[in-house]
Design a binder for these strands. Structure first.
Lengths: 147, 147
DNA sequence: CTCAGTGCAAACGATTTGCAAGCTA
DNA sequence: TAGCTTGCAAATCGTTTGCACTGAG
């Protein structure tokens, strides 16, 4: 499976003096074949299952590389682990996260998008590069956790 | 220094069969004397400086207790450490976080507040219990980190 | 007197890093 | 070949936990 973004990635690698290694390519394809946020561990496991060799260290190192060059986003959604997601050009979306169970729902809201920009601008933050998370309780996790 | 919320806290402790220990009281007062998000470590240090004895373990255990009973909020703002903040009744605010340096700015926006509620509702999330974070780059951290 | 709470140190989970060996350019 | 990359294992970092002791009720 190939992705249009792969060529851009290769170009960046060359331009920046990085080498094109099999591990790098495998990982790149792997992330681009998942269409939502995924943990480093799940990526590793998923690659292992498919027989794609890569070590945990290399995985983390290359994820950071892809983040650095803008191919991947790395964020935390309240939990302990980072979630990775390949960028979706021209398709911004934000995340609604359950503070209890960690469930993540994606949503798109032009209205909130506009407000985000405005708030960023008002505080001297860069208005083009932003993401937003709403943390709340999902329907399974009851309104108020008693006990 | 005493806080109106302290009495509520004491009441909850009694009602729930928890004991009123000096460590608990010290910590409670400590958090309520800080008016923004603060790391566990800073709390510990700050208490140590003031000669208020408490161990790291007890600190974490009691922070969780206060979270459980709704006196404290515990969240991650992108960094590795949790941030704690005593609740500000009737004074909701959200956070704008620099994805680079971690700087956190508080803001209030009734408009975004309304949208949050709406989005929560639309996805079956609890609309009253929510917080929101915008992640972007602050003025010091330049638009696009080259290299 | 009892059992919840404390402190210490050890355990943990995710991620990062040092170093020797491997492989791109 | 040169030196970026890899894999392994060890290290780190913040937070959590087991356990014996302490002290609130």
């Amino acid at each position: 499976m190939s992705f249009p973004e792969l060529d851009q990635f290769l170009e960046v690698l060359r331009k920046k003096g990085h080498r094109v290694t099999p591990e790098r390519l495998r990982l790149f394809r792997e992330i681009y074949s998942h269409h939502t946020h995924i943990h480093a561990d799940s990526l590793l496991e998923s690659m292992k299952e498919r027989g794609l060799k890569i070590s945990r260290a290399t995985l983390y190192r290359n994820l950071d590389l892809m983040v650095k060059y803008g191919f991947v986003e790395k964020r935390r959604m309240g939990g302990n682990r980072f979630l990775f997601e390949h960028v979706h050009p021209g398709m911004r979306h934000d995340h609604l996260v359950c503070s209890q169970c960690g469930k993540v729902v994606e949503f798109v809201s032009p209205a909130i998008e506009a407000l985000q920009k405005e708030i960023c601008r008002a505080h001297g933050f860069h208005p083009d590069q932003h993401t937003l998370q709403i943390h709340s309780l999902c329907s399974d996790c009851r309104p108020l956790p008693e006990s």
